[in-house]
Amino acid sequence: MQRSDVIPSIVLSAYALGRIAAQDAGNEAPAAQWRVLSLLGRQGATRVGELAAAARATQPGMTRLIGALERDGLVRRSPDPADSRAVVVETTEAGAQALASWRDEFRDTLAPRFHALDDADWAALARAAEILTAHTDPTGSTDRKDSAQ
């Protein structure tokens, strides 16, 4: 087995954890809402088209989602300082608080599934989280190694 064969397992497990957490917590908000708030939390003010591409959504679909998030007070739209014809979206304080609460809720919901892990397992998960975060940097500024086989 090649090293990179673990990547699909990580991706599928991450999706499963997200679904399980939402179901077990009774969180009925669309996953796309949390994806958008997470993206905005990581990269700051972003154009709608860039958000759509990052979230793998259509631009009209993203525009509708942003409209709903704006009505709920979770994001705000403003003119792009670099191009007054374009609009950027950013989280509001309420959006940042909702995202933090969502993360806390999902952590607390999933924690019992991991209660039997020992310190070595927690260290391995912490390191895996660091690696995944570094290699999913939306700015693309991480130093990626091409040596994984």
Rank of each mutant, 00 (worst) to 15 (best):
M1P: 07
Q2M: 11
R3Y: 09
V6Q: 06
P8G: 06
P8K: 06
S9R: 11
I10R: 02
I10F: 11
V11C: 06
V11N: 02
V11G: 04
S13I: 04
S13W: 06
S13A: 15
S13E: 10
Y15L: 15
L17G: 13
R19P: 00
I20Y: 03
A22N: 07
A25F: 00
E28I: 10
A29F: 06
A32L: 14
Q33H: 14
Q33I: 07
Q33A: 15
Q33G: 02
W34C: 02
W34H: 15
L37R: 01
L37V: 08
S38R: 13
L39C: 02
L39H: 09
L40R: 02
L40W: 02
G41K: 03
G41Y: 04
G41L: 03
Q43M: 15
G44T: 08
A45D: 06
A45T: 05
A45Q: 05
T46I: 07
T46Y: 02
R47E: 14
R47N: 05
A53W: 02
A55C: 11
R56K: 13
R56F: 08
A57I: 05
T58W: 01
P60Y: 03
G61Q: 06
G61M: 04
G61T: 09
M62W: 01
M62C: 04
T63I: 07
R64W: 05
L65R: 08
I66A: 05
A68E: 14
E70G: 07
R71T: 11
R71E: 13
D72N: 11
D72C: 02
L74S: 01
V75H: 00
R76T: 11
R77T: 12
S78T: 10
S78G: 10
S78R: 15
P79S: 13
D80R: 05
A82C: 03
A82Y: 08
R85H: 11
R85W: 05
A86V: 06
V88E: 00
V88R: 00
V88K: 00
E90C: 03
E90Q: 12
E90P: 00
E93H: 11
G95N: 03
A96N: 10
A100S: 14
W102Q: 12
W102G: 05
R103A: 12
D104Q: 13
D104F: 04
E105T: 15
F106T: 13
F106R: 15
F106M: 15
D108I: 00
L110F: 01
A111S: 10
R113T: 01
R113Y: 06
F114T: 03
F114L: 15
H115D: 13
A116I: 07
D119Q: 12
D121Y: 03
W122E: 10
W122F: 12
A123C: 02
A128P: 01
A128R: 05
E130L: 10
E130Q: 11
I131A: 14
I131F: 14
I131K: 08
T133P: 00
T133L: 12
A134I: 02
H135G: 09
D137M: 05
G140T: 04
S141H: 13
S141F: 07
R144N: 07
K145C: 11
K145P: 04
K145D: 13
D146R: 12
A148N: 07
Q149S: 12
